[in-house]
Nucleic acid binder design. Structure first.
Length: 454
RNA sequence: CGGGGCGUAGCGCAGUCUGGCAGCGCGUCUGCUUUGGGAGCAGAAGGUCAUCGGUUCAAAUCCGGUCGCCCCGACCA
């Protein structure tokens, strides 16, 4: 993409509404614009990142045996009246009426719709288990939206729903999602720690929040530092082997990790040696939950059993805040110059700068670099604007692309470009071929890591 | 929903107290010079001062209503 043609309105100054760093940087880097309180326009750069995140989420959901489909944003109130939540959900739910004065709502979540779908389309225990997910916009009319896309009213969420014939089978589904979440966040360049969460009326140990550690997080968290040392992507997992998946879950639940909701200072002190105690802030990026027959009973989602009887299916739901992750990744990965994208979610792999537009040698080399980067299938944002070097450097640092390739009079006579990583101070002068190969290898490594263990 | 604050050019702000030509910086456009970390000079464009009403010879400024946005708290993917 040529920068001169791209809609990328970077700002030198921060709009005054932005308080936390991810919000400031997303506005300054031209990723989002606020449309109303907690509602955002996603500009091309921000939308690319969100789509990259969604794609990784999608791949890991599929890998764990889930199927993607799509439910509507607008739901009939009638379903919610049947589940008993229509009155219970409160003013957070946006209620609307159509021209016939039928009661509708903009979905804050989708248990009702999918349970109803399941009830009308699945009849037999032989069809179970099922894991179904979609990535869809939600609306929750929060009292006070804040922190940019981290707590918007409208947000993009992946929600998965599992259906099993028994509580024991449901645990396998839960465990699959648990492991797939570990892999998903690791691939996004995040270290997400599963923490015990409130389970509601069901009880038991079947609810976890996935929290990433970040200074600006909203929750106070306590955990064992051993969580920080595990290389999740190197762990092999066969999702069909219930024992193997359960063993992995045990490995990630045996050490202490709790938010302020469940923190027990005495237990923390007793269980975790002093040198392994971590206390800090965290951001919730995922939540998994088993809720048994809470919706299948009222919405009549039952299956026939082998012995001729029938049973309400056991369900769980599993959420990842996709749009929130865009902000969360920035909270975890930035410096005073701007965003530092992990390679896996970067909107472009390379920022190509021509520092002397109008100089025929520089123009020629930059154009050749742009063409060859495209041939190597490396997403490139080519800054071909007739701007000063400082402007281009600052803009590129702000937008956080992982690799910077500079064409300038310094190296052009020898056919050299300068290559530098966003997270490093070291630059190298290389031939164009060498530079492209280096970036290509780095991107390929990231992809290989993603495949490891799967 | 309780408390506090703010709406003036694309962004950041001054002007409001004490009514009297709507301003500054950045950005944008044109020209010249410059060219490795947000350049210099010269010129230009850009405004329903959130909105509705009131007071006044005169309102960004005073008074009242409404809308929007932000922050703190309680609440939440």
């Amino acid at each position: 993409m040529r920068r001169s043609r791209y809609l990328l309105p970077t700002l030198r100054e921060t709009p005054k509404e932005a308080e936390i760093v991810s919000h400031r940087l997303m506005l300054r880097a031209g990723m989002v614009r606020q449309s109303a309180a907690g509602i955002y326009v996603w500009l091309p750069l921000g939308y690319r990142v969100m789509n990259k995140i969604a794609q990784i989420v999608r791949e890991e959901q599929d890998r764990a045996g889930s199927q993607e489909f799509l439910m509507p944003t607008i739901q009939p109130a009638e379903l919610w009246k049947r589940s008993g939540r229509y009155d219970g959900y409160g003013p957070e739910m946006l209620r609307i009426q159509d021209r016939q004065e039928r009661d509708l709502l903009y979905g804050p979540t989708n248990e009702e719709v999918i349970t109803d779908l399941f009830a009308s389309s699945v009849r037999s225990y032989r069809d179970l288990p099922k894991l179904l997910y979609h990535i869809q916009w939600k609306f929750r009319d929060e009292l006070r939206p804040r922190f940019g896309v981290m707590r918007g009213r409208e947000f993009l969420m992946k929600d998965n729903y599992s259906f099993d014939v028994s509580a024991e089978a449901a645990r396998h589904s839960y465990n699959k999602m648990f492991v797939s979440y570990l892999r998903t966040f690791a691939r996004l360049g995040l270290r997400a720690i599963p923490m015990e969460a409130d389970t509601g009326p069901i009880g038991g140990d079947m609810s976890h929040e996935f929290i990433i550690l970040a200074r600006t997080g909203e929750s106070q968290v306590w955990c064992d530092r051993r969580f920080l040392d595990v290389d999740v992507l190197s762990l092999a997992v066969n999702y069909d082997n219930a024992d193997e998946v359960a063993a992995l879950v045990r490995r990630f639940t045996k050490d202490y990790a709790r938010t302020d909701e469940k923190h027990d200072a005495a237990k923390f002190a007793a269980d975790v040696p002093e040198d392994r105690r971590y206390e800090g802030r965290g951001i919730e990026v995922g939540h998994i939950f088993h809720f048994g027959t809470k919706y299948s009973e009222p919405l009549n989602a039952r299956v026939r059993l082998a012995d001729g009887g029938d049973v309400a299916v056991h369900m769980g739901s599993y959420g990842i805040g996709v749009s929130r992750l865009v902000g969360a990744i920035i909270e975890a990965s930035h410096d005073d110059r701007g965003i530092i994208w992990p390679e896996a979610v970067a909107p472009f792999a390379v920022g190509l700068l021509n520092l002397k537009v109008g100089d025929s040698a520089c123009d020629a080399l930059a154009e050749r670099a742009y063409a060859e980067l495209a041939r190597a299938k490396l997403d490139t944002l080519y800054d071909d604007r007739d701007e000063r070097a400082g402007t281009k450097f600052s803009d590129l640092d702000l937008t956080g692309l992982p690799w910077r390739m500079v064409v300038s009079p310094r190296g052009v006579a020898r056919g050299l470009v300068e290559l530098r990583r966003r997270d490093s101070e070291d630059a190298q002068e290389l031939s164009l071929d060498e530079a492209i190969e280096k970036v290509r290898a780095s991107v390929a490594d990231a992809a290989n890591v993603a495949e490891a263990g799967a």
